[in-house]
């Protein structure tokens, strides 16, 4: 798109406002909306609740496009706590103004401390209240990572904060807004960037009944396992670091929907099961939730067969 001067911009905005029967007061807002379109960058507001920033770090591992390209060519990242130069009052002003304006994509990383709002504050305001206000004005919510998607570890048994997932929190607040959940601990960068690109270019992707994009989460880890033939031949690893299917060590691949065993992690470097680690179901809706349902079965106390 060729670049317009500020004068041309305002002129077009005035004409459009007149065409749509809007008063002169709407001209600056129209110009602003056009400005965002001209820059091609839909605004994204990224808020963190009970999070570890792991999904933010994982997002930065995106490749082709990399994060620099995404920030300059795909989206306008209005606020992200880990990346924004704006800090303190300036940062808070940006968040407040963006929320009032509306129309942005809201990314929430981390669970919501529904039972203890003081457990997560930003400028004295509970982040739960911020997320609630932001979601009401957002055109879409993306809950990134297992904490935001399903509650994750902050919502595990015995948790003291009454933590809950973003969709459950929004439902409880009576907020209806298109919401996509992208589980994973962390969320794979392809899952986030792929979903974002799909939303921006073709609208929302097809979702399953938990709100996950089917394109990434319809397959079961076990069925695409690099050790699947070991399973079929009933060759099982007896302890860590052995060859064979990891099922008897407690592998949760059969219970988990995600494509990480095909996609691999960190630019196709490696993935858990390939590296001898049983799947701990980090993308599953029940990830880490039950104290009596451990990641590994090695605890039994009876000695497992050794090499």
């Amino acid at each position: 798109m060729s670049k317009l001067s500020r004068r041309e911009f305002l002129s077009i905005s005035t004409k459009l406002c007149a065409m749509m029967g809007l008063g002169a007061g709407a001209v600056p807002r129209m110009a602003e909306a056009l400005g965002q379109l001209a820059a091609g960058n839909p605004p994204v507001l990224w808020l963190q609740g009970l999070s570890c920033s792991g999904c933010s770090l994982s997002f930065l591992n995106s490749e082709d496009p990399g994060p620099g390209e995404i920030l300059t060519k795909f989206i306008s990242l209005i606020f992200h706590s880990t990346l924004s130069t704006a800090t303190g009052d300036t940062a808070m002003k940006i968040v407040q103004e963006t929320m009032q304006r509306g129309g942005f994509f809201l990314v929430v990383e981390g669970a919501i401390p529904a039972g203890m709002p003081e457990a997560c504050l930003m400028r004295h305001e509970p982040v739960s209240a911020l997320v609630s206000r932001a979601a009401r004005k957002a055109q879409m919510v993306i809950a990134i990572g297992s904490c935001a998607a399903f509650g994750g570890i902050p919502a595990a048994d015995n948790n003291p904060t009454g933590a809950t997932s973003v969709p459950a929190f929004l439902k409880n607040e009576g907020i209806t807004v298109p919401t996509i959940v992208l589980p994973g601990c962390p969320c794979h960068p392809d899952w986030f960037v792929g979903t974002l690109a799909h939303v921006l270019k073709f609208g929302g992707p097809e979702l399953d009944d938990l709100g996950r994009p089917k394109v990434f989460f319809s397959k079961i880890v076990h069925e695409q396992c690099p050790r699947f033939t070991d399973y079929e031949r009933e060759k099982f690893a007896g302890t860590f670091s052995q060859d064979g299917c990891l099922f008897k060590l407690g592998c949760l691949g059969p219970n988990t929907r995600a494509d990480c065993t095909l996609r691999y992690w960190n630019s196709r470097t490696n993935t858990c099961i390939k590296a001898g680690s049983p799947c701990i179901g980090c993308a599953s809706e029940s990830f880490a939730r039950k104290a009596e349902f451990p990641f590994y079965t090695k605890i039994a106390g009876t000695s497992l067969p050794k090499k």
Binding site: S51, S81, D89, A91, M92, R123
Partner: peptide, 11 residues
């Protein structure tokens, strides 16, 4: 008051 401090990890 400087709240939030950005470009660190967390709140």
């Amino acid at each position: 008051m400087i709240d939030p401090i950005t470009r660190i990890e967390g709140h």
